[in-house]
Design a protein around this nucleic acid. Structure first.
Length: 422
RNA sequence: GUGGCUGUAGCUCAGUUGGUUAGAGUGUCAGAUUGUGGAUCUGAAUGUCGCGGGUUCAAAUCCCGUCAGCCACCCCA
């Protein structure tokens, strides 16, 4: 019987995996430079964590979750995003006892039951950041520049950073805007597409980023209420400050008052970084502030901000930019042996070289010298170290530089030192 | 969940109006006089032609279903 991948999943093969290592290391380095510490939370959680956190009516919760009963009948869900689990861990482990803001980052797989498409998988990886315990707009700006710094360090160009504020839940803020928006849209409901007619009741903000032309035309009408004109003074002031700090950071961004995000927990600042060469799934990175979520999930009222980058999409985006990620997986040394005695000697020698951090590969079986040299070449080994009967007799090895073809003899007991220098 | 396109060796593909043992390039493995790679040459292995059914004397080729991939919608990383 032959088995295949489950739909929407992917093997990351050698060559590709080297790029992944590079990306995740880079992200860890940048995140920790900004003061974030890594947290690892389980890949699955109790379903309710997500339904409460992300929102009962959101698309992710209503149709995209991998939910199943475990053997005791508890409803378990593979995490569709990283924030809810991180918040749960923050509350459960009393991380609020740490000096604020508490800064955590995570790298791991997320699961969504969606129809696979370019840049969209049922299992995909995210590298995210969450900062708890501060409502300072400077922190929003810092979080955004954490994202921009990572992208810059990777050499990314031509990405767009969209920024918006969707206000808070106080009656004179987002609810007031939604009411005004509903009022306006009801008068033109005949122009809206069918899905938007439904959204008008369920989730009016979503109509803002509808791609249907007739809906878009409604939004260019002059009388349309703008969210940034309707949020409360405190949210408006916060947004102003975020922008001030972004300017200080010399960040490249644009305010887009139609930007809304798919999770219910966002408050105030939301942002998104897109790559327009990626096709329909162009969002590479997204995030925002979520001041109500910690309390919603049973913790003390705690303001927080964060974002997450999609690894697969980031990789695709970097590819369209023509950025070559380091993909060197080649050994420093390929040990070529002739005869059983040499193989035994090399077997021991390889261990010593490896313990010195020298990447060493050898054929663990008797193969012709030509074959071994071909292997050394195919693996792109930097040097071939050849040991046969003659060498064993003299206690030396022939060291051949694969690029130049130059050879020299090095005493066997000097080999480790010889390669440690370079 | 909806729609469109696609599905032949590990990879990239060819396969004529349905007709006998399905091909090429590339890669893999082995060899080209006995201890030296990247060039060239020789040879070898590998396909349930995505899967299942149907039409036909005959199907990789036509029809239906199914699965998967790609693209778009929806949504998002």
């Amino acid at each position: 019987m032959k088995y295949n991948l489950v739909r929407g999943t992917k093997d990351v093969l050698p060559g590709e995996s080297v790029k992944w290592q590079y990306l995740t290391r880079k992200a860890s380095a940048v995140y920790s430079a900004f003061g974030y510490s890594e947290i690892k939370t389980p890949v699955f959680e109790v379903t309710e964590l997500f339904t409460r956190g992300i929102g009962e009516t959101s698309d992710i919760v209503t149709k995209e979750m991998y939910t199943f009963p475990d053997k005791k009948g508890r409803s378990i869900t593979l995490r569709p995003e990283g924030t809810a689990g991180t918040v749960r861990a923050y509350i459960e482990n009393n991380l609020n006892a740490l000096p604020a803001p508490v800064k955590l980052f995570y790298i791991g797989p997320m699961f969504r039951y969606e129809r696979p498409q370019a840049g969209r998988y049922r299992e995909h990886w995210q590298m995210g950041v969450e900062a708890f315990g501060s409502d300072s707009p400077a922190l929003d700006a810092e979080v955004i520049s954490t994202a921009l710094t990572l992208l810059k360090e990777l050499g990314a160009t031509g990405l767009k950073t969209n920024l918006n504020s969707i206000g808070c839940m106080s009656p004179d803020c987002r609810p007031r805007y939604i009411a005004a928006l509903k009022d306006f849209l009801k008068s033109r409901s005949e122009k809206l597409c069918d899905t938007c007619k439904v959204r008008l009741e369920k989730n009016p903000l979503r109509i803002l980023d509808c791609k249907v032309e007739s809906c878009k035309s409604v939004f260019s009408e002059p009388g349309i209420p703008k969210i940034l004109d309707h949020i409360c003074p405190s949210c408006a002031a916060h947004f102003e400050k975020v922008i001030d700090y972004l300017k200080l950071a010399k960040a490249d961004y644009s305010v887009n008052d139609k930007l809304v995000r798919g999770f219910d927990y966002y408050t105030k600042t939301v942002f998104e970084i897109t790559c327009d060469k990626l096709g329909a799934q162009n969002g590479v990175l997204g995030g925002g502030r979520y001041n109500g979520l910690v309390e919603e999930l049973g913790g003390q009222p705690t303001p927080a901000v964060g974002f997450s980058v999609g690894v697969e999409r980031l990789l695709l985006a970097l590819e369209t930019m023509g950025i070559k990620l380091p993909a060197d997986d080649s050994p420093d040394i390929y040990l070529v042996t002739l005869g059983e005695a040499a193989l035994e000697k090399a077997f021991v020698l390889a261990g010593e070289l490896r313990s010195a951090g020298i990447k060493t590969v050898m054929a663990c079986e008797d193969k012709s010298m030509k074959t071994q040299m071909r292997l050394a070449d195919a693996l792109k080994a930097k040097t071939a170290v050849i040991i046969g009967d003659n060498e064993l007799k003299d206690g030396v090895a022939v060291v051949k530089d694969m690029a130049t073809g130059n050879q020299q003899k090095v005493a066997l007991n000097e080999l480790k030192r010889h390669f440690s220098k370079t």
